[in-house]
């Protein structure tokens, strides 16, 4: 019995997934679009959350706006444009490639290239290190040490 309750408790976090507002859609395709949109639009108040995750009041209103536009037959593109015209590219979780966002897109590759270059320099320098020449006395000593091992 105790075990049962233990597993039942594990299911508790799933309840969190229950949505805050239940919007009714006349068409499942619209509902899917709505879910897609609120997942890719960013909440401006808590900037590391999307609209779907955020409980901020502005996010609630932006979800309602998205819902109304989906219900009224706006395309995904129209809704995204509506948001970008007001809040800028910042509202998108995957911002378009523009001069202002170039660093965001290219940055990781620049860091990668710099890393590879440093690695190559490091390896080359190591190969160039001169081999240590041993004198005949040292050779003899090494030989005797190796013989002793046997």
């Amino acid at each position: 019995m105790r075990r049962f309750w233990f597993f039942a408790l594990l299911l508790l976090p799933v309840l969190v997934l229950a949505n805050i507002e239940a919007y009714r859609f006349d068409d499942p395709a619209k509902e899917a679009r709505y879910r897609g949109l609120i997942a890719e639009l960013r909440c401006l108040v808590c900037q590391n959350q999307n609209l779907a995750d955020s409980n901020a009041e502005l996010a609630q209103d932006m979800r309602r706006q998205t819902y109304e536009m989906v219900q009224n037959g706006s395309s995904n593109e129209e809704i995204v444009t509506f948001m970008v015209q007001r809040y800028g590219d910042f509202v998108l979780y995957s911002p378009p490639f523009r001069p202002s966002t170039a660093l965001l897109w290219i940055g990781p590759f620049i860091i990668f290239v710099v890393g590879v270059v440093i690695l190559l320099i490091f390896i080359r320098r190591r190969n160039k290190e001169p081999e240590v020449e041993l004198s005949s006395a040292e050779h003899a000593r090494a030989q005797s040490l190796l013989d002793n091992k046997k």
Binding site: L58, R86, Y87
Partner: peptide, 12 residues
């Protein structure tokens, strides 16, 4: 209901 402020891109 944030009707007007959303047009202005207000977030706070």
């Amino acid at each position: 209901e944030s009707r007007s402020i959303m047009n202005w891109g207000v977030y706070g």
